[in-house]
C-alpha cells in the first residue's frame, strides 16, 4: 500500500462519518462513501502530494453527494427508512441506543436545506475549522458562517419539537 492508499485508508472512518452527516440513511451513507472512494482512486493523479488529502477527499464526497443523493429530490423523503431498530440482536443495549441517537440526528439533519446541512456536517460533525470548510465548499467566509448560524438555529428548533412530542 503506497502513501496515497495509506492516507486514504486512514481517512475512511472520517469520510464515512461525514457521509452519514450528509445522508438520510446509513445505506445511503455507505453508498456515498463507496462512490467517493472509487472516484478518489480514479482521480488520484489529481491529488498533489503535500496538500491536504482530507479536504480533497471530502470535496469528492460532497460532489458525489450532490450528483446522487441530493439529486433524487425530496419527493420520497417521507419514505426515509426508520433504522433505529436495525442493531437489535447484534449489539448490547448501549450500541442500540447509540444507533438510535445517530439516526434521530440524521433525520433532524435531513430536514435542513442541503446548503446548511453540508456546512453542519463539516464543522459540527467533522470538526473542521471555518476556513477549511469554506475553502472546501468554495464559499466566502460570510456565507459559510451565516449558513452555519441558520442551520444551528433550525436544528435547535427541529430537535426541540421532537423532544416535546
Amino acid at each position: 500500500m503506497d502513501e496515497f492508499e495509506g492516507g486514504l485508508t486512514a481517512l475512511l472512518p472520517r469520510l464515512r462519518r461525514f457521509a452519514h452527516g450528509l445522508s438520510r440513511s446509513s445505506a445511503d451513507a455507505d453508498d456515498l462513501t463507496q462512490t467517493a472512494v472509487e472516484r478518489a482512486l480514479k482521480a488520484r493523479s489529481q491529488w498533489e502530494p503535500g496538500t491536504r488529502l482530507d479536504s480533497w477527499l471530502f470535496r469528492i464526497a460532497r460532489n458525489a453527494w450532490i450528483d446522487t443523493v441530493r439529486g433524487r429530490g425530496r419527493a420520497d423523503r417521507v419514505l426515509a427508512p426508520e433504522e433505529a431498530g436495525e442493531a437489535v440482536g447484534m449489539d448490547g443495549r448501549p450500541a442500540i441506543e447509540a444507533k438510535a441517537e445517530m439516526h434521530f440526528l440524521m433525520r433532524a439533519l435531513d430536514r435542513l436545506p442541503d446548503e446548511q446541512r453540508e456546512v453542519i456536517a463539516l464543522v459540527m460533525i467533522d470538526g473542521m475549522a471555518y476556513r477549511e470548510a469554506a475553502e472546501l465548499l468554495d464559499l466566502p467566509m460570510g456565507t459559510l458562517t451565516s449558513r452555519l448560524v441558520r442551520g444551528r438555529q433550525a436544528l435547535l428548533k427541529i430537535m426541540g419539537e421532537a423532544c416535546d412530542d
Binding site: G21, T33, E101, I125
Partner: peptide, 16 residues
C-alpha cells in the same frame, strides 16, 4: 450531541 452522536462511526473498521 452532534459530535457524540456520530463519533461511534470512527470506531467501526472500514476497508478499501
Amino acid at each position: 450531541r452532534l459530535a457524540e452522536g456520530f463519533r461511534p462511526l470512527l470506531d467501526e473498521p472500514v476497508a478499501l
